[in-house]
């Protein structure tokens, strides 16, 4: 074993990259859950996004188009979820599971002819001055565009939820849909919006895995990232800024275990690979705090 081969700066830098897909997906789910919708289909939307990302970028040769296509794919899938849970009033837990199973099959079908496709290079940004800073430069300022899109989205969601009237209404719908309905807010419409934002974000997160992290298409490549994203939302107590912390924590565990694998630690690879999942459970047990939105997961029907 050679621990000195692990460069702490590179570790921190790759932590930001490793956490981006989970961050994006968790952010979308956070908005949906603040609106009172529990969408367990994140994994299915992510993997569909990953497949769509490969397809669109392979067809156009542009990674950004790939990301846009992935967001669209995730959005369409979440639209299905929205129709089922909001219009046809199906159970959200069961529908979310169905979405994941469906998404895994759909993505495998879509992606199978793109197994050999290599996504176009996705350039890292080179910011003047910032990128050349010692220590901070390589850690913070030499990433690709999506890393910063993710960070900007965190700020945007935080601002939207806590500082705008629309955000307040969305939270009201999530806390108590009967009351929000009585006040004249369009509960179903607002939830449709929140669900589809969640779908688009999950799609982006999935595409980040297939276009940047891996980068190629393999079946089931998200390997539970969507479920980890769901766990992080709980861990963050439904707060966007704590979400960032959670995502970095998991990015950190993932990167560290990969580095330990590479360094040839005496523990078999399989046990190291378990660590992100075990860490998720531990974090849920030890740190889970905060209160879930009052109407989370409940079906709304304006019948009373």
């Amino acid at each position: 074993m050679d621990l000195s081969s692990i460069n702490p700066l590179l570790l921190l830098a790759s932590l930001m990259v490793a956490s981006t897909p989970i961050l994006l997906a968790a952010l979308g789910e956070l908005v949906a859950e603040r609106a009172g919708v529990l969408n367990l289909g994140v994994e299915g939307m992510m993997i569909t996004g990953a497949a769509c990302g490969i397809i669109f970028s392979a067809l156009t040769g542009n990674a950004w188009v790939g990301f846009a296509g992935a967001a669209l794919g995730g959005l369409l899938l979440s639209f299905l979820f929205a129709v089922l849970t909001q219009v046809l009033l199906s159970n959200q837990v069961a529908t979310g599971l169905a979405l994941t199973l469906f998404g895994l099959g759909l993505s495998a079908l879509l992606g199978q002819s793109f197994a050999d496709a290599r996504p176009p290079a996705f350039p890292k940004l080179d910011m003047p001055i910032l990128s050349d800073l010692p220590v901070l430069g390589p850690v913070l300022f030499r990433h690709d565009g999506m890393v910063y899109v993710g960070l900007l989205l965190v700020v945007a969601v935080w601002y939207f939820l806590t500082r705008t009237r629309a955000g307040l209404i969305l939270r009201a719908v999530g806390e108590n849909h009967e009351a929000a309905h009585a006040l004249g807010y369009r509960v179903v419409l607002i939830r449709f919006g929140a669900i589809m934002f969640g779908g688009a974000c999950a799609g982006l997160g999935g595409a980040y895995i297939s276009l940047v992290r891996v980068p190629q298409w393999t079946e089931g490549m998200t390997a539970g990232a969507g479920w980890i994203a769901l766990a992080i939302v709980v861990f963050a107590g439904w707060k966007p800024v704590r979400l960032l912390l959670g995502a970095y924590l998991f990015g950190g565990v993932t990167v560290l275990q990969l580095n330990l694998q590479a360094a040839g630690l005496a523990i078999p690879v399989e046990y190291l690979s378990m660590s992100p999942y075990v860490a998720t459970i531990l974090v849920l047990v030890i740190l889970a705090a905060g209160r879930a939105p009052g109407s989370l997961g409940k079906t709304f029907h304006a019948s009373r």
Partner: peptide, 20 residues
């Protein structure tokens, strides 16, 4: 393709929940 069957099974649950 094998995935078509997986899709098929997922669809079944979807439609069931919708019809329900």
């Amino acid at each position: 393709p094998r995935s078509a069957i997986q899709l098929f099974q997922g669809m079944l649950l979807f439609f069931l929940l919708a019809v329900d």
